[in-house]
Design a protein around this nucleic acid. Structure first.
Length: 954
RNA sequence: GCCCGGAUGGUGAAAUUGGUAGACACGAAGGACUUAAAAUCCUUUGGACUAAUACUCCGUGCCGGUUCGACUCCGGCUCCGGGCACCA
């Protein structure tokens, strides 16, 4: 028999690849008695660089799973195709004049060859290519359905425009203010665009997320991207005018704290109120500056707020009829909500910053609420409650950086000076009086108020009542150490201590005291916590918690007709047109008489015409606009002269439905046959990179929902379960990139070690989902493993294996099966390695057991297993076999090693029969010599964990 | 700043309804075979203390807690990766 090395060198793997292709062993049959599984890879963009090692990671994972499922008796659909529209081929065309079709075909050929050389069990009869007119006929058809449902519309809006790609981009394609493709800073540009109304599906896209078996990170990414928020729209009348400003807010509870309003610079109303604005020149100048700021500048400057007040007009706060100023500022976005806000500086950080900068008043309407949680201090329902105005006094030493604190030893409180405000006193009076009474000091250098009002509810043991204390805090700096008469100092419950500034944080143990201390140290900010607060200064909302206040305020607003409940999303409609050549033409014509008219379905596909120059015009027109004979057409409705839409679709169009086409790829009369769709859908397992979280995966869900609503797709959600494979990094631990020179080409690895080794290595590296570095030398480990199995044929005997080996075999079958089901391939491989090591040790394995081993290894290393299988004399493929059953009795050991822990430390190990009773185990442990050394007298406790360990407490 | 992940030997990693930390593999060291090398096979390999593969102690990013027992659970941090970023 030839060596494994010879097998590889003589093209043994290719031999089997050809055999599988020729016998169509991987073909999925539509309709079958077997249960179906649809397992799917994200199809690649066939780039000129060819496959990199990241691609096969996911493909191998899915391939192993597919082969396993077939062995388990499933009818498996496992297809591959090409997401082939896109910029690289087009940019190459611009540079060289080569038609993108030619480049694309060449790249697809390379990709197909490389993918086939890895021995993946794809059903190649179902291959799809998004650039094939037979395919994009149906992409266009779906677009027409969207158009007819009113989900595709034309609009001239400011969109993200990439000056390098010279095309508009969807929001999802902008990362960090840069073009996702080329990294160029995007600009805002007003362009006529085709938009898809994905926002109409925002709620369903959001709700659906929860039902999906997807990684939580992707689910949260989608949720955050959709960004639903609930709140209210509120109308603010402009004083002395019929005009009003409508704002969106999630915090209607804070309306009494709204001290100004802000409009986005682009807000229409600014122009409409032009005549009333006294400083309109200044306002216009600001608008112009804001407009010229790029997105980058806007975000870079986001720390420093700018704005201009609209002088001469005021808005009326509908809850109290107070007139408040109106500003414009670019911190308010024109595209979110109503493009205008009510500003509540006390409870919004941005408004706080703005108000501080421009000296706008701040009104606190929520008091932070502190509930004491310790047993003694908690409010007692049987005691009466006293509400009291209280002061907290932070007293600073006259020369040290120390603070005067009270130690209430009996109650375990450590606080600043505290006390109630007496009748006829104001807060500051009370603070000074309490300072004198409790500390004895009397000469003040400076006093000021700190922070706002806070509430504290607790049981006051020393007074035997529940207290609801409304706190205000004063900071006093002493002038000197002179004191009042000793006997007048209140020392009944506490004594005073000077605490160094650095130690105050750990000394004070009352939360609200600490709250003020932190404000003293770090300065005041907006209070934005919605869960721990009580409404104040808010008339009918006073004493409510914010959540209740929100509800009550919305009811009030609706009753008065000045506002209503409202929902907002961050999700924007999908900018769907591209001013480029290499994409699906949008099948619409513009007719002077009939407006925008869709092509007849029978006239699809509308194919891409030949052009002389692929260069985008950069003026918002695609290269298609330059071909008069293509542009000029007749209106399908009236037959009159009309012009074709010259924009093309984005790359995401073709990938938004491709999994449907695999089901029926050659159908000329529908995108897929309904019965076949019902049979195969949904996709049971989908694997791909996380970078598509808010691109492909969102668009695909959207299109699928639309098709579901049209009744042409049976499920609302396309992908039941999703797994993300982790990125494979270069050997240096950095992202693989040409410029770093750390890219690994699979072809080189295949030449050296073969496809089976390559597949095994990528699966053995670590968990599929993890990011992990490539290491060429580590490949040897799995290569040796395969080599050992090849050489193992010499140990194969007729008859039966050693009993111990049998147990290992059954355990391995169980473990590998379970691990494949959860894609724990690294541990499945290590289990098989353990088995191989065992066989090598005993040097004999029965033919029957060796064949079982080949079957469970076959999904991982299909070529070698198929070869050995055939060498063992089988005429049929190993993949026609059944996954072996394991014997449940043989996966349990008859004897187990049990560690004995004494006070948590392992002190001895006992070998005991697996079925020993707890009593027997205890007895064995206590009579063990090692154990005896540690025990004198009766142990306090003995814990026996069946089959695991014995824990003795002494 | 906010939201999601993650942190275990020299390296990739394994183990979680809480139960022997480091399986499996790489690398390294030693040995066998060989004229020699490669390949292959065998042995050792978390750290400290040791003549010791005898004891003992330490050890899963850091600090604290719960427990007979914590990589695993709870509280508080640090660092790294990813995403979002003035979304009212």
């Amino acid at each position: 028999m030839a060596s494994y090395k010879d097998f590889l060198a003589q093209g043994g793997e290719k031999k089997w690849q050809d055999h599988w292709l020729n016998t169509k062993i991987d073909q999925a049959s539509d309709f079958s008695d077997k249960p179906k599984k649809y397992v799917l890879d994200m199809f690649p963009y066939p780039s000129g660089a060819g496959l990199h090692v990241g691609h096969p990671e996911g493909y191998t994972a899915i391939d192993i799973y597919s082969r396993y499922l077939r062995l388990k008796g499933f009818n498996v659909l496992h297809p591959m195709g090409w997401d082939a529209f896109g910029l690289p081929a087009e940019n190459y065309a611009i540079k060289t004049g080569t038609h993108p079709r030619i480049t694309t075909e060449a790249n697809i050929a390379t990709f197909r060859r490389q993918i086939q050389s890895l021995g993946f069990s794809y059903d190649w009869d179902r291959e799809v290519d998004t650039t094939d007119p037979k395919y994009y006929k149906w992409t266009q058809w779906i677009f027409l359905q969207l158009f007819k449902k009113g989900l595709a519309y034309e609009a001239t809006v400011p969109i993200n425009f990439c000056p390098s790609c010279k095309t508009g981009l969807a929001n999802e394609e902008v990362k960090d203010g840069k073009c996702d493709r080329c990294g160029t800073q995007v600009e805002k540009k007003d362009l006529r665009q085709w938009m898809l109304k994905i926002t109409a599906y925002a709620d369903r896209l959001l709700e659906g997320v929860d039902k999906l078996d997807w990684p939580t990170s992707i689910k949260t990414l989608q949720k955050n991207w959709i960004g639903r928020s609930e709140g209210a729209e509120v109308d603010f009348q402009i004083a002395g005018s019929e005009e009003k400003i409508t704002v969106y807010t999630t915090r209607p509870d804070t309306l009494f704290g709204a001290t100004y309003m802000v409009l986005a610079p682009e807000h229409q109303l600014v122009q409409e109120l032009k005549d009333k604005i006294e400083n309109f020149a200044e306002v216009e100048a600001y608008i112009a500056t804001a407009k010229n700021k790029s997105d980058l500048e806007r975000t870079e400057l986001n720390k420093d707020k700018t704005g201009v007040e609209l002088k001469g007009i005021k808005a009326i706060n509908p809850v109290n009829n107070v007139e408040i100023p109106i500003w414009i500022s670019d911190y308010v976005l024109a595209t979110y909500g109503t493009g205008a806000i009510m500003a509540v500086p006390a409870h919004d950080e941005r408004d706080w910053e703005f108000a501080k900068k421009f000296n706008i008043p701040v009104i606190q309407v929520i008091a932070p609420l502190f509930d004491e949680v310790s047993e003694e201090d908690r409010v007692r329902p049987d005691k009466k409650t006293e509400v009291r105005d209280t002061v907290c006094v932070i007293i600073k030493h006259w020369s040290d950086n120390s603070f005067y604190c009270l130690n209430w030893e009996k109650f375990n409180w450590k606080s600043f000076v505290l006390g109630g405000v007496e009748a006829g006193e104001n807060g500051q009076d009370a603070a000074i009086r309490e300072m004198k009474e409790e500390s004895g000091f009397k000469n003040i250098k400076a006093i000021r108020k700190i922070g706002g009002e806070t509430h504290n509810s607790f049981f006051a043991t020393h007074k035997d009542v529940n207290r609801y204390a409304k706190f205000n805090c004063y900071f006093i700096e002493l002038a000197d150490g002179e004191r009042i008469e000793e006997e007048k100092i209140d020392t009944e419950f506490h004594f005073g201590e000077w605490i160094k500034s650095d130690n105050v944080d750990s000394y004070i143990n009352l939360d609200n005291n600490l709250w003020y201390w932190r404000i003293y140290k770090n300065g005041e900010t907006a209070f934005t916590d919605i869960d721990n607060g009580k409404m104040i200064n808010s008339e009918f909302l006073d004493d409510l918690v914010p959540e209740e206040a929100i509800r009550k305020m919305i009811v009030w607003l609706e009753e008065k007709g000045v506002g209503k409940k409202a929902v907002n999303y961050k999700l924007r409609d999908w900018v769907f047109s591209r001013q480029r050549y290499w994409g699906e033409p949008i099948p619409l014509v513009h007719c002077d008489k009939c407006g925008t008219v869709p092509l007849d379905e029978k006239d699809l596909p509308l194919t891409l015409p030949e052009v002389e120059k692929y260069e985008p015009t950069g003026t918002g027109e695609s290269p298609l606009a330059t071909i008069d004979e293509w542009v000029n057409t007749t209106c399908p409705k009236c037959g009159g002269p009309a012009k074709r839409e010259t924009n093309t679709m984005p790359q995401w169009a073709g990938s938004s439905w491709y999994w449907l086409r695999y089901i029926d790829p050659h159908n000329d009369t529908a995108f897929a046959d309904q019965e076949k769709l019902k049979y195969w859908l949904p996709v049971d397992l989908y694997l791909g990179g996380a970078e598509h979280a808010v691109l492909h995966l969102l668009y695909a869900r959207f299109w699928n929902m639309v098709l579901f609503d049209l009744g042409v797709v049976p499920q609302e959600e396309p992908f039941t379960k999703l797994i993300n494979q982790g990125l494979i990094l270069g050997e240096d631990g950095e992202k693989m990139s040409k410029s770093r020179g750390n890219v690994v080409n699979p072809d080189d690895i295949l030449k050296e070690y073969g496809a089976d080794t390559f597949r095994m290595y990528e699966m053995f590296m670590g968990p599929l989902e993890d990011m992990k570095p490539w290491s060429t030398k580590n490949i040897l480990g799995v290569h040796r493993f395969l080599y050992k199995i090849w050489e193992m044929s010499q140990f194969v005997v007729d008859g039966s294996s050693d009993e111990e080996l049998e147990r290992v075999i059954h355990k391995t079958i169980k473990k590998v099966g379970e691990d494949i089901e959860k894609m724990g391939y690294n541990t499945a491989i290590s289990a098989m390695m353990v088995l191989i090591n065992k066989i090598q040790e005993v040097k004999t394995v029965s033919r029957n057991d060796f064949e079982k081993l080949l079957v469970i290894l076959a999904p991982f290393a299909p070529h070698m297993c198929e070869e050995l299988w055939s060498q063992l004399g089988h005429a049929e493929s190993i993949f026609k076999e059944k996954w072996p059953e394991y014997d449940p009795d043989k996966v349990i050991d008859s004897e187990i090693e049990m560690p004995v822990q004494i006070n948590g430390k392992v002190r001895a190990k006992l070998v005991l029969p697996a079925n020993a009773s707890d009593e027997e185990v205890k007895a064995a442990a206590l009579s063990d010599e090692q154990v005896k050394k540690y025990i004198s007298g009766e142990p306090k406790k003995i814990i026996v964990v069946k089959g695991k360990l014995i824990s003795i407490v002494i």
